[in-house]
Design a protein around this nucleic acid. Sequence first.
DNA 1: GTATCTGCAAATCCTTTGCAAGTCA
DNA 2: TGACTTGCAAAGGATTTGCAGATAC
Lengths: 141, 141
Amino acid sequence: MDSIRDIASQLSRKGYRITPQRMMILESIENSDTHIAAEDIYAQVIKKYPRVNISTVYRTLDLLKQLGLIYEIDLGEGKIGYHPENKGHHHHLICRKCNAIIDINESALFSVKAVLLQAFNFDADLKHLALFGLCEKCRED
Amino acid sequence: MDSIRDIASQLSRKGYRITPQRMMILESIENSDTHIAAEDIYAQVIKKYPRVNISTVYRTLDLLKQLGLIYEIDLGEGKIGYHPENKGHHHHLICRKCNAIIDINESALFSVKAVLLQAFNFDADLKHLALFGLCEKCRED
DNA sequence: GTATCTGCAAATCCTTTGCAAGTCA
DNA sequence: TGACTTGCAAAGGATTTGCAGATAC
């Protein structure tokens, strides 16, 4: 994955240091299929390096977030998932019954952005949106 | 506002008791222009009745939520707002710069629901959605 | 070498819970 | 009266912070 090196070089270029902790956290985010919570990143990292502290995870996520290298997505119920910025933008359909998460392409909601821009002059940030509802399976019940 | 009496009578009909605490909490939600957080409800209630405990606020909100009498809306950053169900459904455009909240009518996003239903067979719950972005003023800067 | 980063422990914030006392119907 | 509600205090979980020691560059 060049994505990790890419982010690492950006950190380095901006004067931040490349530490093993940061690299491991980046790997966790990168290897996650969709989005991953702080706790889950921590759980993965301590498998390889048990001395890592969860505060380091939070501090690293905060840094990456501020630099715009990762994105935060609000999954509801206080859960926040993280996602690398350079892995593409998409939206999430979250089933409130079975908790399934369906990823949909960014373009699916382009029309929403256009409507809001035209009607309210509001520039909506629709890069990583979570929508709740009922998925195909659960609708049948 | 009949809205409060309406909710109160529904509580009563379902076997729950009408207590001064519950009435005051209902008033706070009702008098709020848009949506109000648990903490803010508590702040308002203790002005009139300092002995009320915040756990009562949480318990009452939980009850009203379960009965579908109020709606929860995720305002991001872990903030949750409450809104009476019978005051109509709408969406919120939240400016990430100045934190302004613009309410828009539910119908503005009907097409989104239709698209998701057709393309993904996903029945999105778009009754109270919060979208983040830049408002008219802040776009000019 | 030195400014940055980390681990540790404690603090903080928001929310929930157990339980005895209070109160609505 | 009696079940439902409340206040209180304490617990809980997630996140943040202060600081001394460790480390990247």
